[in-house]
Amino acid sequence: MKKKEWLIILLIGVLAAGMILGRRLFSSSAGNPDPYGDVNAPKKEAKGEWIAVVHHDSIILYFDSGLDSEYTVEGDVGEMHIEVRDGRWHVKDVECYDYTCKNMGWADQNNLFPIICLPNDLVIVNAETAWNMMEKE
């Protein structure tokens, strides 16, 4: 590989790392922030963090990442079963055809990856990010 090519790859790598660091530094955790007019938004403070499940353009479920539990939501193709344990959450099972969301494994509040199931049009993301998504739309 030529020197110029190494530099381009390095630049892309640095840019991507900068974007990740920037987002980690400037994103605040969602304890109980302003729900941007969502009437169904939880009023009390979460033990862990409020996590939202977004279907199409609306939040269909809020759950507290600090409370161990299991939830079921309905997507476009079928049901999605979400398990919350020890401050982490994952898709335990899902009725769809590619299982990417299930294969993504466990997520926690330090994890900025939303869990996305495109066939069902479901996104599991922290509540603050979900409200930001709603506001932009």
């Binding site: 991507a16 987002r23 900025l112 996305i116 998504m133 932009k136």
Partner: peptide
């Protein structure tokens, strides 16, 4: 649009 968050991770 939320999926754009993962772009830097994908790039890396």
């Amino acid at each position: 649009s939320g999926v754009a968050v993962i772009l830097p991770y994908l790039l890396l």
